[in-house]
């Protein structure tokens, strides 16, 4: 509960801040807080990843970008009514959607009845009284179910994930591989700034 309130406070602060540097730092804190929340919700692997990737890598990337660009948001933030309407509508839709949801933590929720029990049974087969031989894929060798599923049943998603990183990597290389910017066009930047960008 406290974590959640802190998260909301951080998020609101991010919107309101004009100093981009502070905003970036706050977004790092936001990630860390959410990692904490993940731990509370039993998702330790996710928490670990979020702390490393979300709070770590993403923040570093943002800071790196800030060094290349400016650190202040120019116009004072003001309320954008049309955006607010869209957001409120979307939020309302989601809240309405939650009304029929199973309560938080409800062990009888559908999500825990189908597919998932089989995953858990694979890992803790011995305990649930299932035979060790026929349907037990891991025979208890992989204690972390998340890892087991990630690498087996949903190993293909993980391959896709690698492909995503690879795509982003190639993309960043393509975009920033130290070539003069936008040949054939006349950017309105002064040379000094362009060179600064090239060194990235």
């Amino acid at each position: 509960m406290i974590l959640l309130s802190l998260l909301v406070a951080t998020a609101v602060a991010i919107i309101l801040l004009r100093d981009l540097f502070a905003a970036v730092m706050l977004s790092g804190i936001f990630s860390l807080l959410s990692a904490g929340l993940f731990v509370v919700m039993d998702a330790v692997d996710v928490a670990f990843t979020e702390a490393a990737v979300g709070a770590g890598i993403a923040t570093v990337l943002m800071l790196g970008t800030l060094t290349q660009t400016s650190t202040r948001e120019r116009p004072a933030p003001r309320l954008d009514w049309s955006a607010l309407v869209v957001v409120v509508l979307t939020g309302t839709a989601l809240v309405i959607g939650t009304l029929d949801m199973p309560a938080y933590g409800d062990p009888t929720a559908p999500i825990h009845q189908h597919v998932a029990p089989a995953y858990i049974a694979q890992n803790v087969g011995k305990q649930s009284g299932r035979s060790e031989t026929d349907d037990d894929d891991f025979q208890g060798h992989v204690p972390n179910m998340v890892t087991a599923i990630l690498a087996s049943y949903r190993g293909y998603d993980t391959l896709g994930e690698l492909a995503v990183i690879f795509t982003a990597g190639v993309g960043v290389m393509l975009l920033l591989s130290g070539l003069p910017p936008t040949a054939g066009d006349t950017p309105e930047t002064n040379p000094a700034e362009s060179e600064a960008g090239v060194d990235a």
Partner: peptide, 14 residues
């Protein structure tokens, strides 16, 4: 707890 959402979100974070 259900491990599958964790798996999915690990992918999604990346």
């Amino acid at each position: 707890s259900n491990p599958l959402p964790h798996v999915l979100i690990l992918t999604a974070i990346v």
